[in-house]
């Protein structure tokens, strides 16, 4: 059974205005803690099979840090991250693609990067090409692809890589509107199969059908968390009103704890 559990997770980044060596030396000499930025502060939630979580908040709220922690790309400074199950992270479509390789070659490399074996890759190859609508171009070098074609290929590989936990970072802008709908349908299909979903997006309306819970982050702090409907609505109101008190009001409200 797959699960994603965050227990009081905090993550700070060291400022990188100086080279590591000099920072290290300075710290030894002065005994001061290095300058740091707190990207995530005391975040807790837990998701089990078939649950979806939406993470909302302005730029720099810590949304991507949360996803990177869930994907095992970062380690928390404090707290505990526990993830069981095959994670497929759609953090940036087409990372790991090489422009000189063909679509087919990139497909194979990318599938391997997502943890698929040769047999599994062969099994999904045709479905991926079909889904990405690249039948005629799959043996062309990637540098001849349009931006949309590359995104389609990346998305198609990820959703066919049999994820148990799917992490999605602002990828709803994939391709044209028709393909966006296809992506949404595919995500909803995965949700119906009981896959865990964590997604980050600026457009809560699209997310609502897939998410049971939501977390609203602001500068690493949880402003509000709980059932998706409530949180997304509150966030939407805050965004529309643009009133400075709203965030504070939200922060002081007793944020509902997720199961």
């Amino acid at each position: 059974m797959a699960c994603v559990i965050f227990e009081n997770v905090s993550k700070t980044y060291a400022r990188q205005s100086r080279q590591f060596f000099w920072r290290f030396l300075l710290q030894m000499l002065t005994g001061r803690e290095p300058l740091s930025v707190r990207a995530l502060d005391n975040v807790s939630f837990s998701l089990r099979d078939g649950e979806g979580l939406a993470v909302v908040g302005p730029n720099g709220a810590g949304k991507s840090t949360l996803l990177a922690l869930a994907a095992g790309l970062l380690q928390p400074d404090r707290g505990r991250v526990h993830v069981t199950g095959r994670v497929v992270a759609l953090l940036e479509l087409g990372s790991g693609f090489h422009p000189d390789l063909t679509g087919a070659e990139n497909l194979r490399v990318n599938a391997a990067l997502l943890g698929l074996t040769r047999r599994e890759t062969n099994a999904i190859f045709d479905q991926v090409v079909e889904f990405a609508e690249l039948r005629d171009f799959i043996n062309e070098p990637l540098r001849t692809y349009s931006h949309g074609m590359i995104l389609r290929l990346g998305f198609a590989i990820a959703v066919h890589a049999q994820p148990e936990i799917l992490l999605i970072d602002e990828v709803m802008a994939v391709g044209d509107q028709r393909f966006q709908h296809k992506c949404l349908r595919k995500i909803s299909e995965l949700r119906q199969q009981g896959k865990i979903l964590i997604c980050v997006s600026q457009a809560p309306a699209e997310l609502r059908p897939f998410c049971d819970y939501a977390i609203w982050l602001e500068r690493g702090h949880v402003v509000q968390q709980g059932p998706a409907g409530e949180v997304l609505e509150a966030y939407q109101r805050y965004v529309m009103n643009d009133s400075p008190d709203a965030a504070k009001a939200g922060a002081s409200a007793p944020g509902a704890r997720l199961s």
């Binding site: 994907a71 095992g72 994670v87 391997a112 040769r118």
Partner: peptide, 17 residues
């Protein structure tokens, strides 16, 4: 406590290498 456990299901990385 600092601890992370990300379960890697696959121990065979031959195909990736």
């Amino acid at each position: 406590m600092i601890s992370v456990s990300v379960a890697m299901q696959r121990r065979n990385y031959g195909y990736l290498i």
